[in-house]
Amino acid sequence: MTENKIRTIVVDDEPLARRGLRARLERHEDVEVVAECQNGVDAVNAITQHRPDLVFLDIQMPGLNGFQVIHKLRELQQPVPMIVFVTAYDSYAIKAFDVHALDYLLKPADDTRLKAALDKVREYFSTQYQDEQSRKLVNLVAELTGDDCEEILRKLAKGEPVDTNPYPDVLAIKDGSEVTRVNVKDIQWIDAAGDYMCVHALDGMHIMRKTMKELEQELNPQWFVRVHRSAIANIRFVKKLVSHISGEYHLILQNDTELKVSRSHRDKVKAAMKM
């Protein structure tokens, strides 16, 4: 904040909605609208340039939607300002935001609801709660970003059940006439053997016929990282990353299995290990 002004950006793909919200915001002396954006790409650029304190962010926009805007800022390692979501969805979606303690405006926003949202923003800035709000925002984005977030929002609007985790908890591995269910959390690493994948789990090794690319897409990238053209490791089972004099890197798992890290995947492995 500068000179007790809350520097604000309004993001909405509807021109009338942007103008209406800006006009209402300008009635508040401690709010300064520094930019308006008509799509998610412009929003990312404006937030990066202006470093606002607050963004009124429409959810459903062409290109990047509201959740993807925040995800992109995280990718670019840009600070995420305080967010007030603007949505046309009904109470089912609103309940989802309430659970995460984020504020929202339901279109069309009225003066009373806008004042309540701004009062909450002022309270955040006058306390130490902004760090907590940022963490909850990141958690929400982690759940609702990606290709399926529009479908998730549609389900919320209709009151349909939503599974925000797109990755399975169990892999069903078929072997002849038998199917073995392997808990994904128990998978330590996976390596390729010709046209087959060797899935090394806590209960032993399982063979499945699937490509490395297909299997990689099924596994949560938060935990599973490609370390080589023919190997994937579960970061939760990694004990250490070792660099050799030759310049090669190897992952050492908790059971002392050693996996070579290829040059093309080295930076991704380091990032996964928070190095």
Rank of each mutant, 00 (worst) to 15 (best):
I6H: 01
R7W: 00
R7P: 03
D12C: 03
D12M: 03
D13E: 06
L16V: 14
L16K: 10
G20A: 04
R22N: 08
R24I: 05
E29W: 04
E29I: 07
Q38M: 04
V41R: 15
D42F: 11
V44Q: 09
N45G: 09
N45L: 05
A46E: 07
Q49I: 02
H50Y: 13
R51S: 13
P52W: 00
D53T: 09
L54Y: 04
F56K: 01
L57K: 02
L64S: 04
L64M: 03
G66S: 12
V69H: 05
I70E: 02
L76S: 08
P79I: 06
P81K: 03
I83L: 12
V84D: 08
F85P: 00
F85G: 04
F85T: 09
Y89R: 06
A96P: 02
H100M: 14
H100K: 11
D103K: 12
R113H: 07
A116T: 12
L118C: 02
D119N: 11
E123W: 10
Y124Q: 07
F125E: 03
S126M: 02
Q130F: 12
Q130E: 14
S134G: 10
R135I: 10
K136V: 04
N139L: 08
G146H: 03
D147V: 13
D147M: 13
C149Y: 10
I152N: 07
L153T: 04
R154W: 07
K155S: 04
K155E: 09
P161W: 08
D163T: 12
D163R: 06
N165R: 08
N165T: 02
Y167A: 03
P168N: 06
D169S: 10
S177L: 12
V179S: 11
R181L: 15
N183G: 06
K185N: 13
I187V: 15
W189T: 03
A192K: 01
A193G: 12
G194N: 12
V199R: 05
V199T: 06
H200I: 00
H200E: 06
D203M: 02
G204N: 04
M205N: 10
M208G: 12
R209Y: 11
K210C: 11
K213I: 14
E216S: 09
E216F: 06
E218H: 06
L219Y: 11
L219H: 13
P221D: 04
W223C: 12
W223D: 14
F224A: 01
V225I: 14
R226M: 11
H228G: 03
R229H: 15
A231S: 14
I232W: 10
I232Q: 00
A233G: 00
N234P: 09
V238D: 08
L241D: 09
V242D: 14
V242A: 14
H244Y: 05
S246I: 09
S246Y: 09
G247C: 13
Y249S: 06
Y249N: 02
Y249W: 09
H250D: 14
E258Q: 13
S262N: 11
S262V: 08
S262H: 01
R263V: 06
K268T: 15
V269G: 05
K270R: 15
A271T: 14
A272H: 11
K274I: 12
K274H: 15
M275A: 09
